[in-house]
Amino acid sequence: MVERFQIAAEAVGAIVKRFTTLIDGAGYVTSVTGTTTVAAPTLPPALRRALPDLTLAEPADFAVAGAGISVARAGIAATGSLLLELTDPTDRSATALPPVHLVLLDITTIVPTLADLAGLLAENLNRPSPAYLSLTTGPSRTADIERVLTIGVHGPKELHILMMEGDASWTRD
């Protein structure tokens, strides 16, 4: 299933990397973000500790941040999709405004198909409180001019998926 996820995600233009430790994953994040500011309003504490040099952008400056970081709630193998829980508009902006989006995915949360996600989606949507859930599959794209596929329109131009193998319970902290 992990392989299928990777193949499907790469087929739609995502960059997929696999890591067995948090430190390796953090190293990759740094190599992508470099010195730019990063939109990451809700980083898991363990990841934040592993990225001591990260320069976080203020929400008001997300539009000029170089990258955004999020953690996925689940993945779909058939399509290489990520389920993101983005009820807070600030979390949403972090995934929508910067040109680069990095998402950490605990591979144990990958399900085979969209239908297999129904339970988790329903659980979130059937609570009385407002919610905003997003399935993200590859970077933003268009084929509106002459049907030529072009990657990177209003959303991210690059989507990096960090597949975390081994113990990734820290993603849920």
């Binding site: 999709s81 407002p130 919610a131 905003y132 599959t137 959303g155």
Partner: peptide, 24 residues
């Protein structure tokens, strides 16, 4: 499931958003 496949031959679009109530 069916819409993007039938529309443009995409398995799924880049984004599918589920919006319930005003958030924030």
């Amino acid at each position: 499931e069916i819409l993007p496949k039938n529309a443009t031959g995409q398995k799924i679009t880049s984004y599918v958003s589920f919006i319930k109530g005003p958030t924030g």
